[in-house]
Structures are given as structure tokens and as C-alpha cells.
Design a protein around this nucleic acid. Structure first.
Lengths: 132, 132
DNA sequence: TGGCTAATTGGCATTATAGCCAATAACCGC
DNA sequence: GCGGTTATTGGCTATAATGCCAATTAGCCA
């Protein structure tokens, strides 16, 4: 990877890094509904004010959200709307993964039952084939 | 944030975390063109074989890529195609940010010139207004 | 089987993140 | 200006991520 490519990859990774935290994902979901002040987000997240402020500054620095000072409050709002599309896709990925886990667990349970009834210590198959 | 929400946000954040590294972004770009074996990616990235392998396992664990063993090599390929759309959007964000930086730098240079010619130590305006 | 290549895993040192408290800054109303 | 509120920054510790080396596993082929 040459230096030029390295720099481009790093810049992209930084955007993903900015989103790589539960609280910041929460903020994104909240800002999708409309602008919010730091105090509101702090209340909802339940961390220290300073912690939330730092999270917001990370998102802002990445160019994902913007801030606007009005009176003595700061309101944040979504800038990169395309993040929402991807978050929807991620939602789907999680669903898929969860279903797969559930299915695998069901197979494991089945195999365990089989073992119990036959006294066989090793499961018949890793693919879930228990049709004998 | 209740426990249920926390878990959902964490699951989403994990996908972003998986993408939050230059080498892993590079892998995504490469797999967008087609499947690649670990050896190819290792060659291109220039890190240790074990390091690349760990990066790949992180992406796989997140459900973003899949692997397939053929002969004594392991080929990885893209699973979550929607990542590419978002990466294109991020590309655009970086462009925008870069342009803004260049513009701000131009203004700063202008102000500096102004200072030099007038002997004024403080810049006239933070907004770049140098119209006097 | 034994040697070869490809890939993964364990272990460990280095570096980066996260989150709290305290201090500071910015703005309002009096 | 002075106290009250809102937000950011600095400093610190605890935790997590990274990347190398060494050891191990898995498949090929002679």
C-alpha cells in the first residue's frame, strides 16, 4: 500500500471510527429525528456531560454532524444523511446474524439430545444433519 | 438509554468498529473487485501475515465478508455489499472537508499578507472578511 | 510419512479510546 | 458586573485495539 493510498484509507477509516461507539450511534439515531441540544442527549445517554460533549465533537470533526449555538445552548444536527441508509443496512445484517445464531443453537440442542439418547459423546455432524 | 437499546446500539457500533481501520478499508476496496486470498492481501497491505489474518477475522466476525477454503488457501469475498455505497458517500464527505480546509487555508494566507503589509498583529476578522 | 506452503492463534508490548472529575469559557437575566 | 446555566477542555486512570513474533494447524505433494 503506497503512501497516497494509505492516507486515503486512513481518512475513510476515521469516519468509521467516529461512528464506532454505542453512544455515538445513539446520537445518530436521535439526530435523525431532528436537532438536539447537548443537554437533551446527555439526559438520554446517561453519561457525564463532558463525555457526551466529547462524543459529539468526534462526530462533528468527522463531518457527520454540525453544531449551532443558540442562546447558551448548542444544538447538533445531522449533516451526512447517507449514514442513515447504511445504518439501516447494518440493522439488517444484525438481524441476519441473529437468526443464524438462533438456528445454530437449535441444532446444537438437537445434537445434545441425540447424544443423551444414544450415549454417544461426539456429535454426528457439524452441519446439523441429524436425519438418521 | 435502557438496556435493550444499549445492546442494539452496541451491535451496530461493532459493525462500524470492524470497518474502523485503514487496512480493513483497503480490504473492502479490494474485495469489491473480487475474491482474494490472504496471501494476496498480505502482499498488498505489507503487514505481517498474522496481522492481516486478524483483520480479516474481524470483518468476517462482523458479517461483512465471508471466507472459503480451497486447496490450502483461504479466499475472502464481500458479503455486505451495502458497505460500498456508504464508502462512496464517505469518499464524498472527505472531498468536501478537504475543499473546506483548502479554502480556510487560503483565507489564512490572505490575512497573514494583510498583517504583513499593515503591521497589524491581530487578524481583522475570524470570518475571512478582509474587504477594507 | 515428511517437508512445504498457507493461514490462524496465543502472547506480549505499544498505542489509542473512554469516561470521570475539575477547571474554564460563553451566554443569559438581574 | 454577578450568580446561574450550558458546554467544552485538560488531566488522569482504566480498558481496548494493534501488530509483531513464535507456535500451531491444515492441506498439498513427493
Amino acid at each position: 500500500m503506497d503512501e497516497r493510498t494509505q492516507a486515503r484509507m486512513e481518512a475513510q477509516a476515521n469516519v468509521f471510527k467516529a461512528l464506532a461507539h454505542p453512544s455515538r450511534i445513539f446520537v445518530m439515531n436521535e439526530l435523525a429525528k431532528g436537532e438536539r441540544c447537548v443537554c437533551e442527549l446527555t439526559e438520554m445517554i446517561g453519561s457525564d456531560k463532558s463525555t457526551v460533549s466529547k462524543h459529539l465533537s468526534i462526530l462533528k470533526q468527522a463531518g457527520i454532524i454540525t453544531d449551532e449555538k443558540r442562546s447558551n445552548m448548542v444544538f447538533y444536527s445531522l449533516q451526512a444523511k447517507c449514514v442513515l441508509n447504511f445504518m439501516a443496512c447494518v440493522e439488517g445484517m444484525i438481524e441476519t446474524k441473529l437468526k443464524k445464531l438462533v438456528a445454530m443453537h437449535a441444532i446444537a440442542v438437537k445434537n445434545k439430545d441425540k447424544q443423551r439418547s444414544t450415549g454417544n459423546a461426539a456429535p454426528r455432524s457439524a452441519t446439523g444433519n441429524v436425519s438418521d
